[in-house]
Amino acid sequence: PALIHAFHAYRTGPLALRLARRTAIPLVVTFTGTDANHDLFDAERAPLVRQVLEGAARLTAFHTSIADRVTRVLPDLRGRLVVVPQSVSLPRGVTFDLRARWPLPAQTALFVFPAGIRAVKNPGFPLGPLGRLVRHLPEIHLLYAGPLLDPGAGEALLRSLAARPWARHIGTVPHTQMASLLSQADVVLNCSVSEGGMANSVLEGLALGRAVLASDIDGNRSLIDDGLTGFLFRDEAEFERRAAELARDPGLRERLGRAGRELVARRYPPEREIEGYRDVYRQLVAVPI
């Protein structure tokens, strides 16, 4: 290969760095939200993360908020760091049979939480406020779609769901069926404590014209203009208020979804992301790409 590109400084970076040094070719590292928000400040993991970042020829981040966080700690990296915004391209045409997995009433306001279940995604957060709303808005249902990546968080979620028939975890959904599943959602949720820039769940929900309700963090603010392309929340009370509005008002969901879809199509096409990485590679290798 002409170069090595590693995704995730802590998980794949050390192996990629060893290979790059052994073969004397450039290393590009894309660092994630977990790298920038957690691993870089973890006493055990930080030395390894820093070694990888300092050994890379180029670093990429999905958003300026993540790049700024890293360069505040390691300012010498600024000259090698490039922001390449994410795009979204979901395969279409393969149907997800939601009724076979969870038969729902005809009149349902379906909230979908599409994410691997781990602590940083804050999966238990919506259960409290939505549980209060269900008493008055029984059409509300909550669907979790994603693998149990963190055993502790996964077990806690499953215990919580056992007493809540209006909420269910269906496990991993094949990537080819995610567009179909999200298209059946009324609201797509992102409750993350932190993100590595633009969350896939938010990008995909917006691209499919779904209303998005997301935590008010840097990565989500980069996509959600509150009240225009979706809703942001800072606490349970705000989440509950916005969720109630979305459950009650199909017209509001349609307006937000349409604006979000137009935003993604205009600003985050796949061609832009591809060209961003090509520019990074051209700086390091002598062959045309």
Rank of each mutant, 00 (worst) to 15 (best):
A259Q: 14
A207D: 11
G93D: 11
F125Q: 13
V73Y: 04
A106L: 00
V88Y: 02
D68M: 00
V187S: 06
G128R: 10
W102F: 00
T34R: 07
V264L: 03
E204W: 02
Q107G: 00
E54H: 14
R101I: 01
S222T: 13
F31N: 05
E44T: 09
A119N: 08
F62V: 09
V280K: 05
D216Q: 07
A237T: 13
V202S: 02
G154W: 03
R255G: 08
F231T: 02
P1G: 13
L223H: 01
A211M: 11
R99W: 05
E204R: 07
A162I: 00
P129I: 04
I217F: 04
A145N: 08
A43Q: 12
V193D: 14
L228Q: 13
G152W: 02
V285S: 12
V94C: 04
N122K: 10
E155T: 14
P174V: 01
R72M: 07
R210Y: 05
V88E: 07
F41Y: 14
E236Q: 12
Q177Y: 06
S222F: 02
V73N: 08
V70A: 09
I25P: 13
I289Y: 12
D76Q: 14
V70K: 02
P126H: 04
L182Q: 10
R159A: 13
G197E: 11
R132Q: 13
P103K: 00
P250V: 09
P1L: 12
H141S: 04
P85A: 15
A145C: 12
R242I: 01
G124Y: 02
P151V: 09
V202K: 02
L208P: 06
D249C: 14
G257Q: 14
A20D: 07
A100V: 05
L104Y: 03
F111G: 03
R168I: 03
R58V: 05
G209D: 12
G209S: 12
A247P: 06
L137W: 01
S183A: 15
R241E: 15
G209T: 10
K121H: 02
P165S: 06
R78N: 06
L104A: 03
D279R: 15
E139R: 15
L143S: 05
R261H: 10
D76K: 13
L228D: 08
G131C: 07
Q177K: 09
D249S: 15
L59S: 10
R168A: 11
T108E: 05
E44P: 00
A119F: 04
H5M: 09
S180L: 08
G116C: 00
Q184Y: 03
P174G: 01
R92H: 11
G124H: 05
L143V: 08
V212S: 11
L203T: 08
A179T: 02
S180I: 09
A199R: 01
S183I: 05
N190T: 05
L137K: 02
